[in-house]
Design a protein around this nucleic acid. Sequence first.
DNA 1: ACGTAAGCGAGACGGTACGTCGCGTCTTACC
DNA 2: GGTAAGACGCGACGTACCGTCTCGCTTACGT
Lengths: 189, 189, 189, 189
Amino acid sequence: MSQNRSENQDLRILRTRKMLREAMITLAIQKGFSSVTVNDIVELAMVNRATFYRHYQDKYDLVESYLDELYTELNAAPVSIPGPGEPNPRLMKLFEHIRDNAPFYRAMLGPRGYSGFADRIRRLTEATLRARWEALEGRTRMPPPMVLSYLSHASYGALVWWLEEGMSHSPEQMARWLHQLTLAAFQVD
Amino acid sequence: MSQNRSENQDLRILRTRKMLREAMITLAIQKGFSSVTVNDIVELAMVNRATFYRHYQDKYDLVESYLDELYTELNAAPVSIPGPGEPNPRLMKLFEHIRDNAPFYRAMLGPRGYSGFADRIRRLTEATLRARWEALEGRTRMPPPMVLSYLSHASYGALVWWLEEGMSHSPEQMARWLHQLTLAAFQVD
Amino acid sequence: MSQNRSENQDLRILRTRKMLREAMITLAIQKGFSSVTVNDIVELAMVNRATFYRHYQDKYDLVESYLDELYTELNAAPVSIPGPGEPNPRLMKLFEHIRDNAPFYRAMLGPRGYSGFADRIRRLTEATLRARWEALEGRTRMPPPMVLSYLSHASYGALVWWLEEGMSHSPEQMARWLHQLTLAAFQVD
Amino acid sequence: MSQNRSENQDLRILRTRKMLREAMITLAIQKGFSSVTVNDIVELAMVNRATFYRHYQDKYDLVESYLDELYTELNAAPVSIPGPGEPNPRLMKLFEHIRDNAPFYRAMLGPRGYSGFADRIRRLTEATLRARWEALEGRTRMPPPMVLSYLSHASYGALVWWLEEGMSHSPEQMARWLHQLTLAAFQVD
DNA sequence: ACGTAAGCGAGACGGTACGTCGCGTCTTACC
DNA sequence: GGTAAGACGCGACGTACCGTCTCGCTTACGT
C-alpha cells in the first residue's frame, strides 16, 4: 500500500490522493484525527469508499504517507552541528514547518490525535541528536541510548508546550533554547 | 460512572470490579491495551456485559479507576527536595512501582498501549517537578512551563527506555541519573 | 444458523423473525427472489442489518427456514396409496398449499427465482413417489432411480405449468391427472 | 451484445472470444458456473476486463452465445418421428452431445450451475415433443401444454439422473427408454 | 506495403452488497 | 438491588464484483 508514490503520472491518481489527503487534514482539525472515519474522509473528498482502499490501507496509512512526503523535504536540510549559542538548523526548520501547519499538528498531537504521529516526530529529533552520539560515548557514565531517549522526548515536550501555548516564541528562539538545554545534558558528568 | 468508589461494601460489587480489573490487566499484557475489547474483558472475567457498563463507562474508565487507586498511594510519599547527588524519593518510588508491574506498564506504554496512560505518568513527574517551580522563577530566561514540559517528557523518555531495555539498572540509579539531568537543565543560562 | 427453531419463547425473536420473513416474501413477489438483497429485507422489516445476521446466514437461510416450517405440516398428511383414479392426497395438499401462496411460488420458481427452492419441491414429490419404489423394483427393466427422477421432474413440470397458466384447474384435478400419468409410467414394460 | 456473430473475420476478435469461452468452460468445470466471476474469466483468458465487456454483457451472455452455436448444429438433425420402439434421433444426438461434454454439463446443471442453462435444454426437448402436439390434440382430456411441460421436465429429469449417475447407459438406451415413457403418457386416457 | 481505424491492455473509478465487529442500551428473570 | 442472559440498534469496517471510462499502444485490414 501507499505504493508507487514516486513517478506515478496518472492525473486521476494524483487528484484522488490530493482530495483524500486534504479531506483527512480538514477533518482531523475539525474533530481530532482519532474520531475521523474513512467514511468521513471519502464523503468530504467526494471519492468512493472503495477507491480509498485502492490507495491506502486505512486512515493511518494515509496520514503516514503524508508524513513521508513532508519529512523527505525536511531531511534535505544541512546537518552541521551548531555552535554553543546557535540554533540547530534542522530543528529550526521543523519548528517552522510545524508553525506553518499548527492546526493540523495540534489535531494530531492532542488527546484526540494519533500517537504514532507523535512518535514519528520524536524519532525525527532523535535522529538529529544521534549525530552527536559519538561525542557522547565515554563522556558520561550514563547509557547513551537513555540520554537519547531522554532528550528526544524532552524536545518533543518543549514542542508540545509551544504548540499549545500559542507559539508566541519564534522557531529560532525555540531552537536556541532547546540547543542550550541539550548542551547542558551533554555536559553532565 | 466509576461511581461510589468509596465505602461501597457490597461484596458482589467488589468481586465484580476485582474480576474486571484483573481481566483487563491480563488481556492488556497479552495483546496490548488498545486491542482489548469490552467483550474480551467480560468473557475472561466471567461477568455479564451489562454488568460491566453498570460499573464503568468503557475500558478507559476501568483502567483510569485502577490508576486512581495506584497513584493515591504513590502520592503519599514524602516531598523533600533531595540534595545534589541524592535521588528524588518520589521518583524512586515510581520507578520501583513500575518495575514491580513491568509487564503491565510495557503493555500500556508500548505502541499498542493507551496514550492517556502515558500522559498520566508524565503529569505525575511534572507534579513532582513543579515543587521546584518557584526556585526556577526568575533564575532563567526560559519560560518555566516550557522547562517543565521539557523535563517531564524527558523523564518519561528515560522511563520508557528503561522499561524496554529490560530494567537492567536499579530504580535508585535511574532516579539518580534523572536527578542529575534535571539539575543540569535548571542550571542553564 | 436457523438455530433454536423449536421452543424459543422470546417474543422479540419471534417478532423479528416474523418481520424478516414477511419482508422477504413481499419483496420476492415484487421483484423476484434472486434480486432481493439483505438490505432490502431489513429495510422493509425495519430491523437492523446486524440483527438479520444474528438469525440467518443469508437470504437463502431465511427462505429455507420458512420452507422447513411449511413442509413440516405438509408431511403430516396421510400416506395411503390411492386407487387408479383417485388423487394422491399428499400431492393434493401440496397443490392446495401452492394455490394458496401462488404469488410467492411464482416468485420463487420463475426465472428470477431460486433454484434451490424448485429442487426442494421436486424432492418432496420424489419422496412421495419413493413410497412406490418397491412396487417398481423388478417390474420394469428401467433403473428405478431414473424413473424416479423422471417422474419427480415431470410432476414439477406440471406444477409449473399450472402456476403460470393461472391455476384454472382444481388441485384435485391436477392431482388426478398426475396420478394417471404416473401410473402410465409405472406400467411401461 | 453478442453482436456481429456472423461474418466477423477479424482474427483478434475471434481469438479473444475463443479464449474467453474456453476460460469460462474450464472455470465452470472447476468450481461451478455460478461462482465463476468475470474477473476469473479474463484472468485465465489473459484478456483485459474491458475487452470482455466489449464482447459480452456478462458471463450469462457469454455462455448463451456458446449454447447458440452448439444447438444450431443439433437442430440440423432430421425430424422424423420414430416408431414405437425406436429412439428419437434428435434426442439421441442430444444425449451423445452431452456425453461428449459431460464435465461441462455437470457443472452447468448441478446445484452450483445456471438455471437458465437447464431451462434451455428442457425447451429443446420440448420443441422436439411439440412435433407431436397436433397428434395429441383431442386425443386426451388433459391440456396438451401441461403434458408438454410434464414430459419435457421429465426428460430433463432422466437426463440429470444419467449425468450424475455416471452415464453407464448408452445414449441410444436412454433415448429408447424416454421414448417408451413418452409414448405411455400419450396413451393415457 | 503500408496507413489507419479497430481491437486491445492497463487500470482507475463509482457503485452496491456483502458479512463482521465492537459498542452501548435494553428487557426479563433470577437470587 | 446486583447480576445473568442475550436481543437489539447503530455505525464503521474492509472486501468482492460489477460495469464504465479514459488513454495510449499494436495489429490486422483494406486500398
